[in-house]
């Protein structure tokens, strides 16, 4: 099966500012892909070119086997700069967006009622949009994004401004979409959420792709030979250990150690050494660096 999205050597400048430079990545069908980057990195410009809202200066995009702009009916897009018709009623809003996506009025209404239930807004169907809270409006926008049951869903900052309860609701919704076989491109700043949702990511910084690939693999690359053990075993003096530091409890007392092994020493070899030495081991795991730490390190050039 071909990729849902193939972006090749994309380039876009505004006046004297290069917003996107030689950006290439692809998104396989099914699963959740994270398109990450700091503010002003070029994510939104890239997404707008994918959505045919902006034209690239050069490069190519193939989306669901089409050029951008074709097959809009199979794509759902939640932009970062989003709004709603404030004077319109909730149900009317969804029906209108459904019709714009090519649904008949009757089908759009049917889907709208279903989705309002799914995002827990069914009791507000007759309310005007301006009467909804910001979080409710956000859920309505997400419902509008998927009203046409798109194959590909692009969500730009879907968690922005949501309380934890609604964050959880949207996270579940995204997972359900993935389970239905949809492809989701997620752009978000909440790295802990990206970490729990995405299988693959691309990180854009200053208009260029600086990281691209399987998330677990990237995390491994950023934490080579890092381990966490418990309890404290006095790792600093042991052979093969380059660096060790305590991991503290909430009360400030050490509950274990974070260890960095010498190059060439594998975690398996070190574990064998600990067992052979009779160390009182309760926990041993290959440590991974949190995504937000990777993000900061890459963006600040400390990677």
């Amino acid at each position: 099966m071909s990729a849902a999205l193939i972006v090749k050597q994309l380039q876009k400048s505004f006046a004297n500012v290069t917003a996107v430079q030689d950006v290439s990545f692809d998104v396989q069908r099914g699963g959740i892909f994270g398109l990450l980057g700091p503010n002003g990195a070029g994510k939104t410009t890239t997404i707008r070119m994918i959505m045919d809202i902006l034209k690239p200066d050069s490069g190519s995009i193939q989306i669901l086997d089409h050029a951008p702009g074709l097959g809009r009916e199979q794509i759902g897009y939640l932009p970062e700069e989003r709004g709603l018709y404030r004077g319109l009623r909730v149900l009317e809003t969804l029906v209108y967006f459904g019709e714009l996506k090519g649904l008949s009025a009757a089908r759009a209404r049917e889907r709208a009622l279903l989705l309002l239930k799914r995002v827990e807004l069914d009791d507000r169907a007759r309310a005007k949009v301006q009467e909804l809270s910001r979080g409710m409006q956000q859920k309505l926008q997400i419902a509008a994004t998927i009203i046409n049951q798109p194959e590909l869903v692009i969500l730009d900052e879907p968690f922005q401004g949501l309380d934890p309860v609604n964050v959880d609701l949207i996270r579940r919704l995204i997972r359900e979409l993935r389970d239905e076989g949809k492809t989701i491109i997620l752009s978000a700043h909440e790295m802990h959420l990206v970490e729990t949702l995405c299988e693959r990511i691309a990180l854009i910084n200053r208009g260029r792709i600086v990281l691209n690939g399987d998330l677990a693999e990237i995390k491994r690359q950023f934490s080579p030979n890092a381990l966490e053990v418990a309890p404290v075993i006095g790792a600093a003096g042991r052979p093969g250990v380059a660096h060790a530091e305590p991991v503290l409890n909430g009360d400030g007392r050490p509950r274990g150690e974070r260890i960095t092994l010498d190059p060439g020493v594998t975690p398996q070899a070190f574990l064998k050494q600990l067992i052979d030495s009779g160390a009182p081991l309760e926990r041993f795991e290959v440590a991974s660096v949190p995504l937000d730490e990777i993000f900061v390190r890459v963006v600040t050039g400390k990677a």
């Binding site: 707008r48 809009r72 794509i75 897009y77 932009p79 989003r82 926008q141």
Partner: peptide
Amino acid sequence: NRVMEVVLSSVT
């Protein structure tokens, strides 16, 4: 109202 980008993702 920032509605435009949503609409332009559906229509030309």
